[in-house]
């Protein structure tokens, strides 16, 4: 007869574990990666592989150095690597991508305590660090399908948001399908939407933040006289809204908080795009809102069923 095991209730468990959640995020990013490969050639795949590989390696090394438990099995480093790659132009030198991975995993994630403890989104922060460090390499955009051309050199082109005033704008369809210049994973709104809806259907993300993000950006653009549909389809809005503004660790937990977070992202993105010198503001908006998350969280706690308001004389 075995010794009976005594443990506190509940004795039942479900089987959605951290690694399964992360795996689903990877699956949701596959359409965007596939679109990136079709649009920008197979180098997109190579760059993604380098990002994932270096992220996992840095995760492993950091944990080893800090004498902590190895956590590469939770697949969160794979997600970070994939997301980072989606945020890079396809022509970026591989060693720069590795620096991005180092920033994301070692600096932003592990120095703050690892999974769930980082205050800023690793991939977004890495993108911004690379953008500031290597501005020309990070804005070296190529036109889609250049790899089919005979010429050896890629033809460079501007992103839809950086086009000079008066030049011919891409059509909505081109924007929706991603047939424009930009980072590997951010141009094809269709693929990102498919991935985002997949995550929502699997109940891995809530659509509260993406909807309030995209909605507020569209509304503000409309009020300011910009083309709202163009504004939400161009640039990194869909990638940011579905995959970055829904990151668990760096966004608020409660639904109210998520809506506030999305609104903030929409407003900041609009302000940067409309008034700022940068053509694109999605990354900055998410990073800024990441920083505000603890405060949003404090103010948007859930209402407890039947709870009395704190008595004045208490304590």
């Amino acid at each position: 007869m075995n010794k009976l095991i005594v443990s506190p209730s509940p004795h039942d468990e479900n089987y959605t574990k951290t690694s399964l959640i992360m795996l689903n995020v990877c699956i949701a990013l596959l359409p965007a990666l596939a679109a990136g490969c079709v649009l920008f050639g197979l180098r997109a795949l190579l760059l993604t592989a380098v990002c994932i590989g270096s992220c996992v390696l840095f995760e492993f090394l950091c944990r080893k150095l800090m004498k902590r438990e190895n956590t590469i099995g939770d697949l969160s480093a794979v997600v970070t690597g994939m997301l980072l790659a989606m945020n890079l132009p396809v022509t970026l030198p591989l060693w720069m991508a590795v620096i991005g991975s180092f920033t994301a995993i070692a600096v932003v994630k592990q120095l703050f305590g690892g999974l769930g403890q980082n205050f800023a989104n690793p991939a977004i922060t890495a993108r911004i660090v690379l953008m500031v460090s290597f501005p020309s390499a990070m804005t070296h955009w190529v036109v889609p399908f250049f790899w089919r051309e005979e010429t050896a050199d890629a033809i460079t082109g501007a992103t839809p948001l950086a086009l000079e005033k008066g030049s011919e704008l891409p059509s909505y369809l081109d924007l929706f399908l991603g047939n424009v210049g930009g980072c590997i994973g951010e141009t094809c709104a269709l693929a990102l939407l498919a991935g985002g809806l997949y995550l929502a259907a699997r109940k891995i993300i809530s659509l509260a933040a993406p909807l309030s993000f995209i909605g507020s950006l569209a509304l503000l653009s409309f009020i300011a006289g910009d083309d709202p549909l163009y504004q939400i389809l161009a640039g990194g809005v869909f990638l940011g809204a579905f995959f970055m503004a829904t990151d668990y660790a760096t966004t608020p937990i409660s639904k109210k908080g998520k809506i506030v977070f999305g609104l903030g992202c929409g407003i900041i993105t609009f302000v940067i795009r409309h008034f700022g010198t940068f053509p694109e503001g999605v990354s900055f908006s998410i990073l800024l809102m990441n920083v505000l998350t603890p405060y949003i969280e404090q103010l948007t706690r859930t209402k407890v069923f039947g709870a009395k308001e704190a008595e004045k004389n208490e304590g």
Binding site: L4, I5, P8, S9, P10
Partner: peptide, 15 residues
């Protein structure tokens, strides 16, 4: 038997 529970699997108590 490794675990014996009095009550249900969610709130029951280990015996």
């Amino acid at each position: 038997i490794k675990k014996l529970i009095s009550g249900g699997p969610m709130m029951g108590m280990c015996i």
